[in-house]
Every structure is written in structure tokens, then in C-alpha cells.
């Protein structure tokens, strides 16, 4: 293993985050804070209790997931897309680095950033709503798993994209709607039976449900199923990345 190369890519990506703190950290924390203020405090006080939890506390896991998913994808996709766009990728591809080491560097950095962001949002939420964490270890595991899985997805998008527009399409047009419809702001038990069934095809439901279980101890779907689906999605991403490096798709003609 070329650990020095992994460390070089990791440090480089983290330094990029440090240069763009406002955009990569402050901005998502601010927008999530606004969600807490508007949905949690203002509107939430009129909604009352869902599954035995105050509405403000109920949406905390969903909002953290919303930020983590979009930021994991954005960070990882930009991290690999920009060197492709600027041409500096030549250096990585001509260095004595394996595909695994490249992925570890880029995805590791993107996942770290998302974890920092998730933690910041968790701490910020405390100022607005009173929440409990019933299963802290499971919560931390879900955070790490989600940050890693969606950073892998972001890495794939960053290689697939051939323009900045495509880079934005998946987070905005796919992930954001799936997250909003994945039980971020409501329990799927509140939906009519037909839509409850439809919702089960949304992978984000399993993430939000499992993550919420770690906070409240109640979930829309079994926590084991949530974990299994997340791991399955991660496996899909890993297989896709393996194929990318094997074929040289959009990296090596």
C-alpha cells in the first residue's frame, strides 16, 4: 500500500476544505439551522408529538441525514471532478497508486468532511431543540456508514460528470427529493397505505429510519433492514467504482 499517496490526497482535499470553510461548512450549517428555526421551532410547536417525540427533536436525524447526503456527494464529486476538469488528474493517474488508494484518499477526505459537518449540525441543533440519543454507538456507526457510502456515490458522479451541470443534477434533482420524501420531516406511518409501500422503494427511507432509531428508539422500518440496505447500497457503489477503474471509464482512454 502506498499510504503516503493516500495521505497526500487526503491532506490536499482537507486543505481545500479549509480554504473554502464558508462554502463547505458554514453554509450547510446555516441552512440546516434555518430548517430547525422554521420547521422545528416555529411550525413544529403547532404540530406536536410524532411517535412520542416532540416534532423539533423528531426532525433532527432527518435534517442531519439531508445535509450529510448532499454534502458527501458534493464533496466527493467535486474532489475528483475538478482534477479531471483542470487536467491535474494526470499526476494521480501516472503515480504509483492503485485504484483502492485513490478511492481511500478522495472518499476518505469527503467522508471526513461530512462527519465533521454532521457533528456540527448535531451540536447546533442542541441550541434549538431538546433531543436525546438513545443509541450513541449506532448513531455514530450510521453517520460513518452514510458519509462513506454517499461519498462513494459522489466519487462515481464526479467521474461520470462531463460538466458542472451534471455535477449538480444528482444532489439537487435526485438526492434532495428522495430525502424530503424519505421521512425527514414526517413518519411514513402518517402516509396512506399505498404511499407507504411506494416509499419503501426510496433508499433514503432506510437511512433516515435507522438513524432516527438511534436517537428515539422508534423506527419506520426495522433497524437491521436499514443497516442491511445501507450496506447493500455501499456494495453497489464499490462494484461500480471497481468497474470504473477496470475499464478506465472517463479516466484512461
Amino acid at each position: 500500500m502506498n499510504w503516503r499517496a493516500v495521505a497526500a490526497i487526503y491532506r490536499f482535499e482537507m486543505a481545500r476544505t479549509a480554504r473554502t470553510l464558508l462554502q463547505s461548512v458554514a453554509s450547510p450549517v446555516l441552512s440546516t439551522t434555518l430548517y430547525f428555526v422554521v420547521f422545528g421551532t416555529a411550525i413544529g410547536s403547532r404540530i406536536g408529538v410524532i411517535d412520542g417525540v416532540e416534532y423539533g427533536a423528531f426532525i433532527v436525524p432527518g435534517l442531519i441525514m439531508l445535509s450529510m447526503l448532499t454534502e458527501s456527494i458534493s464533496n466527493a464529486s467535486f474532489g475528483i471532478y475538478f482534477p479531471r476538469f483542470s487536467g491535474t488528474i494526470y499526476e494521480v493517474l501516472s503515480a504509483p497508486i492503485s485504484a483502492l488508494e485513490i478511492v481511500l484518499g478522495y472518499v476518505g477526505a469527503a467522508a471526513t468532511k461530512s462527519l465533521i459537518l454532521g457533528t456540527l449540525i448535531l451540536v447546533t441543533a442542541r441550541f434549538f431543540v431538546d433531543y436525546q440519543i438513545a443509541h450513541p454507538v449506532v448513531m455514530a456507526s450510521f453517520l460513518i456508514l452514510t458519509a462513506t457510502t454517499f461519498s462513494l456515490l459522489g466519487f462515481i458522479i464526479g467521474i461520470w460528470a462531463d460538466g458542472f451541470e451534471k455535477l449538480q443534477i444528482v444532489p439537487l434533482m435526485v438526492v434532495m427529493p428522495l430525502t424530503f420524501l424519505g421521512g425527514t420531516f414526517y413518519s411514513i406511518s402518517m402516509l396512506p397505505p399505498f404511499w407507504q409501500t411506494v416509499t419503501l422503494f426510496n433508499p433514503v427511507v432506510y437511512l433516515v429510519s435507522g438513524f432516527r432509531w438511534s436517537f428515539t428508539g422508534t423506527a419506520d422500518v426495522a433497524v437491521g433492514l436499514s443497516l442491511g440496505m445501507t450496506l447493500f447500497f455501499m456494495l453497489l457503489c464499490l462494484v461500480t467504482i471497481y468497474w470504473i477503474f477496470r475499464t478506465g471509464y472517463r479516466l484512461k482512454p
Binding site: 499517496a5 491532506r11 490536499f12 487536467g87 491535474t88 494526470y90 499526476e91 503515480a95 504509483p96
Partner: peptide
């Protein structure tokens, strides 16, 4: 390479150190 492909916002020293790290 032929093209001047660099990370515009990185410093000279850091980018050279990055290259060394990439090669292990």
C-alpha cells in the same frame, strides 16, 4: 505534460510536496 495543468489556489511549495507524496 504539455498543458499547464496546476491547482491554481495551491501554493508552490505545497503542490510540489503533494507530488512527492503521491509517489510514495
Amino acid at each position: 505534460p504539455q498543458e499547464l495543468t496546476t491547482d491554481a489556489f495551491e501554493t508552490v511549495y505545497n503542490t510540489v510536496r503533494f507530488s512527492r507524496g503521491l509517489f510514495g
